[in-house]
Simulated assay, not measured.
Amino acid sequence: MTTDFQQGREALGRRLRELRGRRTQRELAARLGWPQAKVSKLETGRQTATPEDLMAWAKSSGHPAATEELITRLQGIEDRTRSWQRQLSHGHRPVQDALTIEYERSTMVRGWQGDMVVGMLQTADYSRAVFTQFAELQQSPRDAEHIEDAVRARGRRQDLLWQPGRVFHIVMWEAALHATLAAPDVLAAQLDRLASVIGLDTVRLGIVPFGAKLRIPPANAFWLYDERLAIVEDWHAELWLDDADTIALYLRVWDTLAASAVYGTQARRLISHARARFADLA
């Protein structure tokens, strides 16, 4: 999942080596006031440079005019790999707003989620629980104001479900129905919400049953916006991928997973089974 990002870091590292020229790593490290290990890691792509690192490198290597080029290269890497730490530094709201722009630009949105209910179909209480837990994990702002801003932003995006001309084809693994990410009454209400969207002309909701024959593992969550953008979720970052070959690969992945899903009455039956479990716990 991190291949493109790592290749970008390695390419940037090669450029840094070129700029170092005939100086040894030790000599450049001394000029910079850094440990030699940092110079080595940046040149081999084992550490991500900051803009300040690149400015200092360009100046100390005798190529201050290369600063803008280096920072542009870094931005190119980060545009594809958007770390959660950076994105969530001001809470979840900015992330939600950025995603809403992509939803608004799209007429066909395909989604795969294997471990929780997708954001477009979450209730406010479920979203609140998820945002709170992820904020704690990523050590980002988790006070009530930041969390509620994110909940409201996600809720506003869900208005798109009611706009004619859009299609949201969402596939989830059955495990997502059983994940106890919130209190039982919240989970029961969430499953009621899922059942209620089956039949909307803008939503196709498929569930991959536990016993379904799978041709590939039900791995990371991802979204496809028309055929122009794939957003893939990992623990450390979101990958925003827009090259044709990668889009084609994720379309094949999505088609393969969707082929194992059930819809309509069969999907309702799986949702009802999960809901009964949480009703017993409430």
Rank of each mutant, 00 (worst) to 15 (best):
Q96R: 10
D79G: 15
I170N: 11
A175I: 06
A219W: 08
I216N: 03
R269M: 08
D242F: 00
V171T: 07
A212S: 13
L160F: 11
V197N: 08
S40H: 08
D226W: 01
R86H: 08
A66I: 02
A274S: 09
Q266L: 02
R110N: 02
L224E: 01
A124F: 08
R228A: 08
G119A: 08
A49I: 07
W34P: 14
A176Y: 05
K213M: 10
I71L: 12
S140V: 12
I147M: 06
R20F: 09
L249D: 00
S61N: 10
R215C: 01
G13Y: 01
D143I: 15
D115H: 12
I207G: 09
E52T: 12
Q47W: 00
Q25D: 11
D201R: 01
T2C: 04
T123W: 02
G45K: 04
R275F: 08
L241P: 09
T107A: 03
Q47K: 02
I101F: 08
R20K: 10
D159G: 01
P209E: 03
A29Y: 09
Q47R: 05
P209N: 03
K59F: 01
Y225T: 00
D201K: 00
V203M: 07
H236T: 09
R110E: 00
H92A: 10
T107E: 11
V130Y: 02
Q113P: 04
R166W: 03
K59H: 07
L257N: 11
R26P: 04
